[in-house]
Each structure stands twice: as structure tokens, then as C-alpha cells.
Amino acid sequence: MFHWLEKNPFFFAVGVFIVIAFAGLIEILPNFAEASRPVVGLKPYTVLELAGKEVYKKDNCLSCHSQLIRPFKAETDRYGQYSLSGEYAYDRPFLWGSKRTGPDLHRVGNYRTTDWHENHMWEPTDVVPGSIMPAYKHQFTNVADIETAYAEAVTVKNVFATPYGDEFQATKAAWEAHKPKVLADAQKIAADMKNKDIKEAVAAGNIPEVVALIAYLNRLK
């Protein structure tokens, strides 16, 4: 049998495949049967928060910040309650990160404010002397892509049964109808900010990336 395998590259390849696929079959597949169940009270992200999550991904905050509080006293003292699986039920993709060049952000909404984030994203060293985080001034002028965020909400509602309301429909009209709600959310954030340009942009219907990002960060609790 081994002789035959050594002589038959195709069946040899099949053999290799079985051996390497084994771990995945046992370790990973069965977990999908018990797909992540949300913890009680967990709400899906609003469209503005989703747009903020996109900013978080686009500027790749996760290359330096984790969103995973491990069950050690040193971590719960510093960041709060350790993370639970159900809290991530609506995270596609997961954004745990793998490196803490900066602190963990899983519960940053508990101890940082809109105002703090505004100053910090503009110039981190003004808020935290010695910080090596770059300033993200371009987030104050770039406009967040809320339409794509809405498309994401509709997609996860239709494909993965994420509990969004009936008004989330895969039509242009439904999006136009929902848009004022997103703008209203953005205005609430902008009201707590002091940058004049931001307030004007939001009033004109353009949501700067930083507003969406702050909405997302405030939601992390």
C-alpha cells in the first residue's frame, strides 16, 4: 500500500490532504453547529457604528490595539470585566488583534468620552504625553461610507439573520429612508465635539470618519 502511494502522486496528495484536513474537521467544523450566541441584551451595531467599524478596519487600529480582555486580575483591573464569547456574536470579522502596542479597547466606551477621542485622534501626544500613536487628522476630513455600512447591515440581516428591524431592506428606497436616522446619530456625537468643521460637515449631511469611529468606540462597553 505504501509502495503504491509513493508511486501515485495523486493518491499521495489525497493522503496528505486527509492528514492535514483532520485537525480542521475535528477542531473547527463542529463549533459552527453551536454558532456564537449573543449575550443577553446585545444589540446589533447601528449603521453609524458599522461605518465606524469600517474606519477602525481601514486605518487598521487592530494592528496595535486588542479587543480581548483576558481573565487575569491585572487585566480586569486595567480594562474591566474579562471578555465573553457572546459579546462578539455580531462581530464579522472579529477584531481581537494580536498585539498591544496600545491598550486594549474592548471596553473603552466605559472610560473614554467623545471629547477625549476627538482630542486624541487629532493629536495623541496632547492627551497622552509620550504616546507613539500617530495622529489621524485625515479622519476629520474623509467622509465615512455610510451606504456601505447600511449594505453590511442588510447583508448580515438577510444572510446571517442578525436581528435588525423590518425597515432594513435591500433597496435604494429603504436606504434613503434610513439615512436621516444615521445623520441624527451623527449629530448627537458631533454635538459633543468642539471642531467647527465637523459640526458643519455633519449638518450638511456628510459624516466625517472620526464621528463614525467615535460612535463605534463609544459603543465598546
Binding site: F2, V19, F22, L25, I26, P30, A33, E34
Partner: peptide
């Protein structure tokens, strides 16, 4: 499914270990 997973893992591992040693002997 958890039980199935356990049995599958156990017997498959035994099977592959046997194959490995059989191969060495071969």
C-alpha cells in the same frame, strides 16, 4: 455533535498513529 467529535478524534488519531508506525516498519 460533541460526542461524535470526541469519538472521531480518538479513533482517527489511533488510526493515523497506527499508520505511521506501520509505515516506519514498512
Amino acid at each position: 455533535i460533541r460526542e461524535l467529535q470526541g469519538y472521531a478524534s480518538f479513533f482517527m488519531t489511533i488510526f493515523l498513529v497506527v499508520m505511521l508506525y506501520w509505515y516506519i516498519i514498512y
